[in-house]
């Protein structure tokens, strides 16, 4: 907390919101990027890093909460976020974002300046946080999900190797798309990034090596799962 803000992304249907912040002396050192809609903002967020994201409540086609969800789950980035709206909801600091209302006052800006840069998410092989949240710590569901992760990915990696050996890279991309959420649901940060690269960015000649890296990551996850859940080893 307390990090000085430098790079700020403003997402708003009009440039008014950016102009409002530009009018405050406190913001004169900010380097502001402006996006008119949430899709163009997501494109920008894929390639750039920001200290703060400020969104007008009325942005579309994805509303601010969908943007937050996408940034966190899909881009796997964590930014301080602010939603600016009318006074139909109170100004407040929530777990994942701050809300402030028009008209923007100096105290709003001061609060944002001290709304520090989030720590990068700790890299880990897997985490049961998501499955715990989803199931209210239902151990049976969690263990079944882990077994499902192992069994379905074992089979999918056989298919992936087959697709690469043919080679059928379109099929390889489809498989990567299919298995990506499985990595995400087990809280692994690396798998989804590799899957995305195979799906959308890699040229065909890069796919075999990426698939090997993905399989290696999968092997590490399984090893770690088996260490923590020895009884699932033989399942």
């Amino acid at each position: 907390m307390g990090t000085i803000l430098k790079n700020v992304l403003i997402i708003s249907p009009t440039e008014n919101l950016m102009e409002i912040f530009q009018s405050f002396d406190t913001c004169r050192d900010w380097e502001m990027d402006y996006c008119q809609d949430s899709f163009s903002a997501l494109q920008r967020l894929k390639n750039s890093t920001y200290d703060l994201i400020i969104m007008d409540e009325g942005i579309g086609p994805l509303d601010p909460f969908k943007v937050m969800d996408y940034v966190f789950h899909e881009l796997q980035k964590s930014y301080p976020m602010v939603i600016v709206g009318d006074d139909s909801k109170p100004e407040a600091i929530h777990e994942n974002y701050q809300r402030c209302n028009y008209p923007i006052e100096q105290y709003n800006v001061d609060a944002l300046v001290h709304y520090g840069k989030s720590e990068e998410k700790e890299k880990k092989l897997f985490s049961l946080e998501y499955l715990n949240e989803l199931s209210d710590n239902n151990q049976e569901f969690i263990e079944e999900s882990i077994v499902l992760f192992k069994n379905t990915l074992d089979a999918k990696f056989v298919d992936l190797q087959k697709a690469i050996s043919i080679p059928d890279f379109e099929e390889a991309r489809q498989i990567a798309h299919n298995i990506k959420p499985s990595f995400s649901m087990l809280g692994n940060d690396v798998g989804p990034v590799i899957c995305n690269t195979i799906c959308y960015d890699a040229v065909e000649s890069e796919i075999p090596e990426l698939a090997q890296t993905l399989m290696k990551e999968y092997g590490l996850i399984v090893d770690e799962i088996e260490k923590q859940f020895p009884k699932l080893k033989a399942v």
Binding site: Q43, H73, K180, C199, Y200
Partner: peptide, 27 residues
């Protein structure tokens, strides 16, 4: 939906889908 599907999602909305949820979804 998953990431990198903005174009497809836009098409889906044009076809009249009511909403979308990103995988993995928030419960």
């Amino acid at each position: 939906s998953t990431s990198n599907q903005e174009e497809i999602i836009t098409d889906a909305f044009m076809m009249g889908v009511n909403d979308f949820i990103t995988k993995p979804f928030s419960p």
